[in-house]
């Protein structure tokens, strides 16, 4: 379970302050596919980066299974990050490494046994349907395939949570659907909690059981996907859904 309490993030010096996030409160339950929905610049990416402390919140707590991540030492934080997988809009694969080596990367960091690492990596490539691409390099793959490799890499440490930062925004419609189906399977079969950032209503509606709508750094609405979509109470959510006024 991830609980975010009174989290704020401010960028810049005192004169040029920019309040990226203001007093965010969220609870994400185990097994959720939780969508954070908002326009560009609303603060979604900053929020998801606060969950594994790639961004350090200015104020507030990030409780991961009850432990406040903001209070951890650097090495404790690195350990925590290993239990939280992450995938990115532009895949962020290492271009000079093979697919297999990319997937093994998180295990290489902890000097895991090479043979076991390779077996684990191959198992995940099998899961994402790319077993035959183990020796290829990212530049030889399509966008959808690259994101599958990134998913395998994010899962290699057996995380309980996976953060997805606009994971399908660079992909076409059909590929997006395939990636979302894969994420659903991972959620259902491996029990991985998924936190997904998106500006796409279609994506949120297709995959999320719960959503939060964020605007100008504040959560304006949250709840079950169906409830939020059928009865948006905030102006922003109504505008996002195309229901003006």
């Amino acid at each position: 379970m991830i609980q975010i309490e009174h989290l704020s993030k401010t960028f810049g010096s005192e004169e040029t302050q920019h309040h990226a996030l203001v007093d965010i409160n969220l609870t994400i339950n185990d097994g959720d596919i939780f969508g954070i929905l908002g326009e560009s610049g609303a603060g979604k990416s900053t929020l998801v980066r606060c969950m594994n402390l790639l961004e350090r919140p200015t104020q507030g707590k990030v409780l991961v299974d009850g432990v406040d991540a903001t209070q951890l030492s650097d090495s404790q934080l690195r350990t925590l990050r290993r239990s939280i997988g992450m995938i990115f809009q532009n895949f962020s694969l290492f271009q000079q490494r093979s697919v297999l080596s990319n997937v093994m990367f998180p295990l290489e960091l902890v000097r895991a046994d090479a043979k076991q690492s390779e077996a684990r990596a191959r198992e995940l490539l099998e899961l994402v349907g790319l077993a035959d691409k183990a020796n290829a390099y990212p530049a030889q793959l399509s966008g959808g395939q690259q994101q599958r490799v990134a998913i395998a890499r994010a899962l290699v440490n057996k995380p309980r949570v996976m953060l997805c930062d606009e994971a399908t925004s660079a992909l076409d419609t059909i590929t997006t659907r395939q990636i979302l189906d894969l994420l659903k399977d991972i959620n259902r079969e491996l029990g991985v909690t998924i936190i997904l950032i998106t500006h796409s209503l279609v994506v949120a509606r297709y995959i999320c059981n719960r959503v939060a709508v964020i605007d100008a750094g504040q959560i304006v609405e949250q709840g079950d996907t169906a409830t939020v979509f059928d009865n948006p109470t905030s102006d922003v959510a109504r505008a996002l859904l195309g229901l003006e006024g």
Partner: peptide
């Protein structure tokens, strides 16, 4: 690309790594 550094950090890489 700075995003690769960020990805490595998200997997728990330390500075030397």
């Amino acid at each position: 690309d700075a995003s690769l550094v960020e990805a490595a950090e998200s997997f728990g890489a330390n500075m030397w790594q």
